[in-house]
């Protein structure tokens, strides 16, 4: 009797589990939005760790297994995952998530990408042919992606469409209110220069009227050279820049040595939803963290 009951229970949970959409997101920014929209109607797996350099994720065979069972893959579609997603997709043998199928959700669709190169020339560094792929750092883009996800999830699971739409509405309302707060919070620093290690933040700069055209890397993917850093220091002094932002996977030491010479503050700036204490966080928590950190950073006096 006991056995039968537990067996039934197991069966029921298995059925319940299989009724949910199995969604895989490549990175935590898309993952956090998928969670907002999908809620308890989806099972979510995020492949890249939020602290990981999303350009250089290992195409681990365990990811192939995850993708083979997926109903949907949520990816950027702007070549950020170019170095590791294609072999995983090939290996997954899952026609549901193939390019062009409803289960293949490319978040860059409908987004105006910045910095689309007019010519492809690697002497300019490792540039992304489709444009800068770090578009989720602008909350206005997150709004578009959330709507895209709600639409795609509804197509995959029409029965839960109302839930997805309700989740979308709730998320967008929350996000809109937060955007006003964030913009207010950063309004006093309009036009200020923020130095970054890699050119991952043009969308963030646009969203909050910041100037972010100084990078520690001389060219994307090319490590900082002293000659270039001298130039950065000179420009930082000219532009009165006092913050340098660094993603958790990048070399903080380089940023610190520049900070020592310019009196700037080095700020930890995760490129994906990630709360330094708890490990993972929602999109809004992440953006809160970025905005607060930056606002505090501007006020640091040396």
């Amino acid at each position: 009797m006991k056995h039968t009951l537990s067996l039934l229970l197991l069966l029921a949970t298995t059925l319940a589990a299989s009724a949910k959409l199995n969604v895989i997101a490549t990175t935590a920014d898309f993952g956090s939005l998928a969670k907002e929209i999908g809620g308890d109607k989806i099972d979510l797996t995020i492949l890249a760790k939020p602290t990981e350099d999303a350009h250089f994720v290992d195409a681990k065979p365990s990811f192939i297994v995850k993708l083979s069972k997926a109903d949907a893959i949520v990816e950027g579609g702007a070549e950020l995952e170019l170095g590791w997603l294609p072999p995983l997709m090939d290996g997954s043998r899952n026609s549901k998530i193939e390019n062009g199928k409803p289960g293949h959700i490319a978040c860059a669709e409908g987004i105006s990408l910045l910095e689309v190169p007019s010519t492809l020339d690697r002497s300019k560094g490792d540039i992304h042919a489709a444009g800068n792929p770090h578009f989720m750092t602008d909350p206005a883009n997150a709004r578009i992606v959330a709507a895209h996800l709600a639409k795609a999830f509804s197509q995959l699971d029409p029965k839960s469409a109302t839930t997805f739409q309700a989740n979308l509405a709730a998320f967008q309302t929350h996000l809109d209110a937060k955007i006003i707060d964030w913009k207010k919070q950063l309004a006093p620093y309009k036009g200020r220069t923020v130095v970054s290690y890699h050119n991952s933040w043009p969308y963030f700069a646009r969203a909050f009227d910041l100037r972010m055209d100084l990078y520690l890397e001389p060219k994307p993917g090319i490590p900082p050279s002293p000659a270039h850093l001298v130039e950065v220091i000179t420009k930082m002094k000219e532009q009165n820049a006092n913050v340098i932002i660094v993603e958790p996977y990048l070399n903080r030491k380089t940023a610190e040595s520049i900070a020592n010479r310019t009196g700037a503050a080095v700020l930890d700036f995760p490129g994906f939803p990630w709360a330094p204490k708890t490990g993972d966080g929602s999109y809004i928590e992440w953006m809160d963290y970025l905005v607060n950190t930056l606002a505090r950073g501007f006020e640091i006096k040396h």
Binding site: A106, A108, V116, A130, A140, Q172
Partner: peptide, 26 residues
Amino acid sequence: ETKSITSDSLKAKAWSPSDPIPVMRS
């Protein structure tokens, strides 16, 4: 201006010729 944000202004603005063309180059 960012002072008064309506939900409409948060939506993606219409494409204009000065914007990059959102085509997946790959």
